[in-house]
Amino acid sequence: MIRFLDIVRRDLRLALRQGSDSVMVVTFFILTVVLFPFGIGPEASVLERVAPGVLWVTALLAAMLSLDRLFQADYEDGSLELLVLTPTPLELVVAAKVTAHWLTTGLPLLAAAPLLAIFLHLNAAGFGALLLTMLVGTPILSLLGGVGAALVLGARRGGVLLSLLILPLTIPVLVFGVGAIDAAILGMPIGSYLAILGGMLFAALALAPWATAAALRQATE
């Protein structure tokens, strides 16, 4: 557990000192959402109708954008090989790195969400659902993305490839995330959606670090 926290702390410190990565991801998120009113027109009723989908899809793309850096820097400077060699289980190392990734990119997306909800005229109920689904959903994206990030280490055009691999696998998160917000806007209960998203989170938590560790082992062989 101490090792886990050590790795989280190290990654957080690295991210904070470099600084630009998470800011860029959030800026991308905001900028892409701002493009939509230009694309489909500024009518409040239209924007309100598409807001859940637009917010979730752009959050998905923003998460993809940051994922290729998850293991890349460690892979390039060789510290990944040391992490693989430590007595700490590699699955735990992966969980720590994914946690740090979520704290530096998933959580800032949540912080930017209120602003974007106002831009897209999302009502109060929908806004609450947006925050809840993103809170449960973005860690799944980080976990699934970790598998992809480990698989494309050393590949040509890793970043593009990563999106091609992971985006089809994230469709369930998108379906239930948007479904919950749509239901909330109509005043229906969203507990079942959140329960399913939570189930997916636990399944990803149990399985994804294991697959990521397998991918990291073959990358550092």
């Binding site: 598998v147 050393g154 091609l164 089809p168 696998l169 697959a211």
Partner: peptide, 26 residues
């Protein structure tokens, strides 16, 4: 995605292993 990953590495063995993990995860 599977085919792109299998062909994305200079070392074909690497690509094959990565693609195998992807196929099982998928």
């Amino acid at each position: 995605g599977y085919m792109a990953l299998a062909n994305a590495f200079d070392d074909p063995i690497r690509g094959q292993k990565a693609a195998a993990i992807l196929a099982v995860a998928g």
